[in-house]
């Protein structure tokens, strides 16, 4: 069970290891808070849909598995979308299009197919939490770096003195791509070093 949880955090981290679900990683990470919220919204959908799909796995005929999964996922996504729109309107307008797009986030469908359809409800939910949090910390880290360099603040609090030069490019699309590329290289370096010390 513990393994199911930690796998998503590091060894099979969806962003840095599996390289899936990358669109929101790049698009919403202009600030740390946006990254965190998007990550948590995805985590919520992931836990609910994984648990429910695991519960229904014996009822759904194999041939219509994928459409059934999509309906379940789309339902949870729409619920999250509507609830956010009602209670967190500012956040909803920032994340905008990328909330409904959680439906096609490969992490959600991928975990449903690869894990939830084969394991118990509890293990599927735990796997969902692990994967979701793995996704969340990646988004938050990227968001924090871009926010700090791009607008000189962190979680909305100004950290750099007034008038300090910021790298505006970090808030724009190219900054997202380049920062993620460098972060991936860093993850590879850390993993390579871990392997070296282990052997």
């Amino acid at each position: 069970m513990w393994k199911d949880f930690v796998r998503g955090l590091w060894a099979d981290n969806p962003t840095f290891r599996l390289n899936i679900g990358l669109c929101p990683v790049l698009a919403v990470t202009v600030s740390a808070l946006n990254g965190l919220s998007m990550g948590l919204a995805t985590t919520l959908v992931l836990i609910c849909s994984s648990a429910l799909i695991s519960l229904l796995k014996n009822l759904i005929p194999a041939k219509v598995r994928i459409p059934a999964f999509i309906i379940v996922i789309a339902t949870f996504v729409t619920i999250v979308d509507l609830v956010m729109h009602a209670y967190l309107p500012d956040l909803h307008s920032v994340l905008g299009l990328f909330i409904p797009l959680i439906v096609v986030n490969c992490i959600v469908l991928g975990r449903a197919e690869a894990f939830a359809a084969k394991h118990s409800v509890l293990r599927s939910a735990v796997d969902g939490i692990g994967m979701g949090l793995g996704f969340t910390w990646a988004l938050t880290l990227l968001g924090a770096i871009r926010e700090l360099l791009g607008s000189g603040s962190l979680f909305g609090m100004a950290l750099l003195p007034e008038g300090a030069t910021t790298l505006g490019i970090m808030s724009l699309p190219p900054g997202a791509f380049i920062t993620l590329g460098l972060l991936m290289a860093m993850m590879n370096m850390i993993t390579a070093r871990q392997k070296k010390t282990a052997s």
């Binding site: 791509f177 993620l180 991936m184 590879n188």
Partner: peptide, 15 residues
């Protein structure tokens, strides 16, 4: 070495 694969691809995409 660490940049090989997806890493460098993202930097190219950034450019």
């Amino acid at each position: 070495k660490p940049l090989r694969g997806v890493g460098i691809a993202f930097i190219v995409a950034g450019l």
